[in-house]
Design a protein around this nucleic acid. Structure first.
Lengths: 212, 212
DNA sequence: CCAAAAGTGTTATGAATACACCCATGC
DNA sequence: GCATGGGTGTATTCATAACACTTTTGG
């Protein structure tokens, strides 16, 4: 049964974030500098791992492209799995890793609204249409191209034009942008209504009557 | 120099959240059930604590009232400190605890917008004016009483009327409410931003700097 | 009656949307 | 020319902020 990549802190008083980067680069080709990595949450307690008490500090990694996993210490069978396959249960993960993935996806969806995280999915240069595809993929929604175009440009410091280069994909060539200096978006890009995921007791009572 | 309360996981494979509740109740009169407690982040690495490597899973606690701290294991000098005093540096904390407090306050301010966390600051029954005071205190802003009144009631499942009881404070008695079933607010209560139209620094990267 | 706080109605303003329209390229 | 996708203008719709106003209590 597949599991998330991970490992232990080394003995040199290593920073947690550094350790996460190290473990990630050991099992994929993703090295620090090309990948956004942030702490997600810490999972502990008995029963997580039958081998004994393990406290895991889960991290969320975002990067453009999908480099093939490299056979590392214990990653001979490493593979990429679509997020939907984990959410739906089609792919079953070991331990409590399905919960960790669920938390991570929710974190990504929320951060897309209020931070510049989306640019971490793109290469250094990208078009606005590519950025929109990130939002549509992560949110699972469709957005109006024209409105997205202006909305994204209205957020000062989110993206900045990158020289005179263009990228052509069959129609009119698109301007290129790179990530701007701001990491917190104001105003935020609000995701369309499909009711935020409930946390715990959130019972969505949709008492909407249809008149006829 | 004061520090945040805390302690170690016990040896029985205790859940992290349970351990946080246990430590909190050992040093204050706040017991589980009356207090909202959620994981904030994990801080680790060398240099945090001169006594050696310590990995701390910080938690954020929200509760109504301020029970006097009880002299517990090592809390003989326990005291409440205003959040502003820590933010401003007027009160200095040991280790990297000032950073933890800063992160926790930011978490509380953000969660107030999108979750029903504010009700955790109130008793079981509260008036809308009391709820508004929570928002004003945590956000450090002033809100229009009349608009807050309707805005809060427009969020389905946030608060529900609690019988015919009233609470009087010198003027017309106020209706009483209790927390509703929803824990995620839609639409959210957006916090007024100081400068949404002006450009500012905003280079808030995720670099978590370790003090000492 | 008066002061104080709760609760309601109403309007102006600004933002989000929907969509018509123009621009630039490959074939 | 024409298909395709990039980019712009604009009207309608809707949420919000501001504030005048009414209601209900205590003294």
């Amino acid at each position: 049964m597949p599991a998330l990549p991970g490992g232990f802190l080394n003995h040199a008083g290593e920073e947690i974030l550094d350790a996460a980067h190290r473990e990630l680069s050991e099992e994929t080709a993703l090295v620090a500098g090309c990948v956004h990595l942030e702490q997600l949450a810490t999972y502990g307690g008995a029963g997580r791992d039958p081998r004994g008490r393990v406290v895991s500090v889960a991290h969320l990694a975002i990067a453009p492209g999908l480099p093939e996993p490299v056979a590392g210490t214990d990653a001979v069978d490493a593979a990429w799995v679509p997020a939907d396959a984990v959410l739906s249960g089609e792919v079953e993960l070991a331990f409590d890793h399905r919960r960790i993935v669920t938390d991570g996806i929710e974190r990504a969806r929320t951060k897309l609204e209020f931070s510049a995280l989306a640019t971490a999915f793109c290469g250094e240069l990208f078009t606005i249409a590519e950025l929109q595809q990130v939002y549509e993929a992560v949110w699972g929604t469709e957005l109006d191209t024209r409105n997205f175009y202006r909305k994204v440009q209205a957020v000062k410091g989110f993206i900045v034009p990158a020289g005179p280069g263009r990228r052509t994909t069959g129609g009119r060539p698109a301007r290129l942008y790179r990530a701007g200096p701001k990491s917190v978006l104001s105003p935020p890009l609000i995701r369309p209504v499909p009711s935020r995921t409930e946390e715990d007791t959130g019972t969505e009572e949709d008492t909407r009557e249809e008149g006829d």
